[in-house]
Design a protein around this nucleic acid. Sequence first.
DNA 1: GAACTGCCAACTGTCGACAGTTGACTACGC
DNA 2: GCGTAGTCAACTGTCGACAGTTGGCAGTTC
Lengths: 215, 215
Amino acid sequence: MTPPLHLSLAGQAVDVLREQVLTGVIPAGSRVNEVEVAHQLGISRGPLREAIRHLASEGLLTLVPHRGAFVPAADEDEVRALFELRTALECAAAELAASRRTDVDLVRLHEVCAESRRDYTAGQPFPYRLDLAFHRALLEAARSPRIAEQVWLVQQRVVLLRSALEDDPPHQHASLDDHDELVRAVEEGDAARASGVMRRHLSRVCAQMLTSLKA
Amino acid sequence: MTPPLHLSLAGQAVDVLREQVLTGVIPAGSRVNEVEVAHQLGISRGPLREAIRHLASEGLLTLVPHRGAFVPAADEDEVRALFELRTALECAAAELAASRRTDVDLVRLHEVCAESRRDYTAGQPFPYRLDLAFHRALLEAARSPRIAEQVWLVQQRVVLLRSALEDDPPHQHASLDDHDELVRAVEEGDAARASGVMRRHLSRVCAQMLTSLKA
DNA sequence: GAACTGCCAACTGTCGACAGTTGACTACGC
DNA sequence: GCGTAGTCAACTGTCGACAGTTGGCAGTTC
């Protein structure tokens, strides 16, 4: 659609900054100095400002007038509010997926589940990458571009919050089971059950993040 | 919270441009010329560009590299996708409102419903303003800031699409009934019914917009 | 007459510099 | 010693100008 969006300096700056924010290179709570970062990226303040505003609109930065852009710190209420939004979106996506999924979608979903379980039984730590891939595959099956867009933004914010946490993976087994059950519900076209499982799944993940947050 | 956000030229430009886009002063499909509009607002291109990018992030403008910003035209698929998102968000809000509403919220909801019905029975055309006020009051009762944020953005986009349509108000009676029933469900704390009524309500509004679109 | 090529004007993308504001540091008064 | 007013450096907000790209127009060729 818009293939060469990365040609503009602002677009490149968005990518670099997003990566730095999400991976914690720019730690939570710290400020983004325009002149410093601009010089560091070898660009002017103009494109950098655009990039900063763009990331702010995605919720990855918070703007304070005359003070600059900050990486939002993880906050208990924020986690709860964010997961309420995520639940609303992904439950709807699960319902839609149950009624719209094609055979290709099912193959993809089974693949991701199998790969996750393979890694898990092999003792590997069920990379977060595969969890994202699963939710992405489900979104694809839902075929609702606007919902997908928003889910992607919310997931990014969750990644940001998660980056501030030391990742403890005790709930991985339960998540794998949730994913499997979700795929079954979608396969059978049971929208209500798909939504219910998703809600339970996200509720568990949210609770786990909240306990991690307190530590 | 952030009272003097209107002091920055970019912030002012956002307000003015938003108004012009939503009211159709800048018609759908037309382009926004940076130098022209900047001169027209008496500001430089810098703040105006920020304003344009901001509105684009809200979905009120679409950016095309090296071509500029355009007011998105109403499209059938877009309406459907947007209402899928809106349904997901507002059904969740209705559920939350049913379990979190306070007496003050109920008073406010009843007020808005009464005012709407008063205007309607008086032969007045049930201003869109009151419809927005109702959905806003419901959102307030839901107490989920992130969901409220997104609903507000989606409603804005709906207003934009609606501005391109000649407003035919044949579904107003049904909408009033929907609102009343929604308030009853919220009052009784019946989350499932609140969600169901909201879904039916939005489905009807969406269908009405689609038929208006074809004309 | 149609298609192709080269040129041109208009506009967006980018840059460096100036002005206004913020928060902190210092010095003074009590 | 503590609170307060004044000062200052750093940073954001804003501006005008330059460079690169796009789409259209005129001229040319077949």
